[in-house]
């Protein structure tokens, strides 16, 4: 029998699907960062756990804010509690979320300001990584230096027939919309995060740059996932 709490829980999980670790652009739910999720009536409580005791508080707080925003957007939700567990600033950040304090308010003497600039910087990295994922599928050999990218129409024609292709396109399209960049069939597929065209002559170097951005992100993901796994494996010899 499906209870109301069960179906609400599913809604919360679905809402969390878009909340990503800003450094690696993968959903916190898929990464295993949510260790507990409880729905009691109209109250939701979430426990966030991270790969190390030292994960940057500013990144941690971005995730907490995004989790809060995703859940509070559900029509029936009246109360959200987010706890950051096993973390050097866990108490401060958890209390800060409960009070609705912004990050610079929590660490007035130490933080370099609000999180807007940091968010923007990592959103931009995510933009390029998602764009590269699409390009890789269009040119699976990985040697695309001579390839002059076409329009969204071409990409859709080629990629929408496969599941990985559809997913990569959807992820890229979503972040383009977040950046208010055009995604109509006629629009160019490859542009910078500022909306500038990438000329054919610049494309080889451009591709090397986004290759490096993506590698960095994937390396972070390996480190984070590996550390989370051993940290919570309960197998200290």
């Amino acid at each position: 029998m499906t209870t109301e709490a069960d179906s609400r829980r599913r809604e919360v999980v679905q809402a969390l699907g878009d909340v990503c670790d800003p450094e690696i652009d993968q959903p916190v739910w898929d990464l295993g960062f949510i260790s507990a999720l409880a729905v009691t009536g109209t109250a939701v409580s979430v426990v966030l756990r991270l790969p190390t005791y030292w994960c940057a508080p500013n990144f941690s707080y971005i995730m907490m804010e995004d989790i809060h925003e995703a859940i509070v957007g559900l029509p029936w939700v009246e109360d959200v509690t987010i706890t950051l567990a096993d973390h050097e600033s866990g108490g401060i950040l958890t209390e800060g979320m409960a009070r609705g304090t912004n990050f610079s308010g929590l660490f007035p003497t130490q933080s370099g300001g609000d999180l807007t600039a940091l968010r923007a910087k990592f959103q931009e990295k995510a933009f390029y990584a998602r764009q590269k994922a699409v390009l890789d599928l269009l040119q699976p050999s990985g040697r695309a230096v001579d390839f002059v990218p076409g329009s969204w129409r071409v990409a859709r024609q080629v990629l929408e027939s496969t599941q990985p292709g559809r997913r990569a396109l959807q992820r890229y399209e979503k972040i383009c919309r977040r950046f208010s960049l055009p995604v109509e069939d006629e629009d160019p597929l490859v542009i910078t995060a500022q909306g500038e065209m990438v000329l054919a002559a610049e494309f080889a170097q451009y591709r090397r740059k986004i290759r490096l951005i993506t590698l960095n992100m994937e390396s972070n993901q390996h480190i984070c996932q590996g550390l989370l796994q051993v940290r919570y494996s309960h197998s200290v010899p």
Partner: peptide
């Protein structure tokens, strides 16, 4: 590198 990360922007 990784391990300890700072509070500051970074």
């Amino acid at each position: 590198g990784p391990t300890i990360k700072p509070l500051n922007i970074d």
